[in-house]
């Protein structure tokens, strides 16, 4: 267990709903995890499990129909004070985005504004958050483009997004995300839209920059191969809730939750680093509007017992290893 001082982000019982009144769909039922300073936490889960909604809730960027129903999003600022992001007002959030928390989105092709040069868009971060001259700004932008290994950085700064490939655009997004030296970077499947070789390059780049810039990363993916490569810690999500969190080796070697076991069993261990997609577990993710009572995974679980209809919550089963299963299947994978 980390001492709180080492923790940069701790999410406790986050619930997010879409829609109003009786029509509210609860997309996040119970999301809890902690991310250590300077570490990478991988948030994994099948499509629709709520990974993107979690990251948008952290950024205060939920669409108008969505809102945080309850939960705490404790974030430690660089001055050491802890702030609950859920309680921030618009101005507070604006100041937090950029230097505090930065985000790289899932869709590199559409996340850059087509009408501004990439240099403009990266430099705007400095314009917003740092008081530097425009010459300084241009210089920093070019340095940043060099840091993310874009060849011909000075010329590239004057390019428009449509003149760049998907991989280059994602590098631009990374440059934009990192230029204000964020304490926390949220990367929502930053490589899913890219082909495998580019994917490997981007992951290398992110690892290198993390060391150089000393930041914490919340890395969202549904690719267990990428998890093994990137993460220090892993939180596994299923149908809007975190069902297991542990250190990466612990998670792979002593898997405790049957859902995580299913995820891991569905890929050949030797191929982990090749970034293969997950083969889904038998059955399908339940609809958020028709979740079973108790454990949401029970209907697909080979170990399911009548007791599984009782409510479960994430509990520490061993030091630093949390699981939301009433049984304890340590190492049964």
């Amino acid at each position: 267990m980390q001492t709180p001082d080492d923790t940069i982000l701790s999410v406790e019982g986050l619930r997010v709903g879409f829609g109003r009144g009786a029509a509210t769909v609860t997309a996040l039922r119970d999301v809890s995890f902690t991310l250590g300073r300077g570490k990478t936490l991988a948030l994994v889960g099948e499509s629709g499990s709520g990974k993107s909604v979690t990251s948008l809730a952290l950024m205060g960027l939920l669409p108008p129909s969505g809102r945080i129903l309850s939960g705490r999003l404790n974030f430690r600022r660089s001055d050491g004070t802890v702030v609950d992001l859920a309680g921030l007002d618009a101005a507070g959030y604006r100041a937090m985005r950029g230097p505090g928390i930065s985000m790289i989105f899932q869709e590199p092709m559409s996340s850059l504004n087509p009408l501004f040069t990439v240099g403009d868009q990266i430099g705007e971060m400095l314009l917003l958050h740092e008081n530097v001259s425009s010459a300084q700004r241009d210089k920093r932008v070019i340095e940043m483009l060099e840091l993310v290994e874009i060849p011909g950085a000075a010329a590239r700064a004057k390019s428009y997004p449509h003149e760049l490939s998907g991989g280059m655009r994602q590098r631009v997004m990374i440059a934009m995300g990192l230029i204000c030296n964020p304490a926390l970077l949220i990367a929502d499947e930053p490589t899913t839209a890219l082909d495998v070789t580019i994917q490997a390059q981007i992951l290398d780049l992110m690892r290198r920059l993390q060391k150089e810039l000393d930041m914490s990363i919340l890395f969202i993916t549904h690719d267990m191969g990428v998890v093994a490569e990137m993460a220090d810690q892993v939180a596994v999500m299923y149908a809007g809730a975190v069902v297991e969190q542990a250190g990466v080796l612990d998670l792979f070697d002593h898997t405790r939750h049957p859902y995580t076991q299913g995820l891991l069993a569905s890929i050949p261990r030797d191929d982990l680093v090749d970034g293969e997609r997950l083969v889904p577990i038998p059955g399908s993710v339940p609809s958020l509007t028709a979740l079973p009572s108790g454990c949401a995974f029970a209907p697909r679980c080979s170990h399911a017992q009548p007791e599984c209809h009782r409510p479960v919550s994430l509990e520490e089963k061993a030091s630093g290893h949390l699981s939301a299963c009433i049984f304890d299947f340590a190492g049964a994978a």
Partner: peptide
């Protein structure tokens, strides 16, 4: 998506709408 990116950069709604969306 790029309007969401603009918001994620920490600018005012006014700037999001008048600079990034209106153009």
């Amino acid at each position: 998506d790029y309007v969401r990116t603009a918001r994620a950069k920490g600018m005012t709604e006014r700037r999001v709408v008048l600079r990034h969306a209106l153009k």
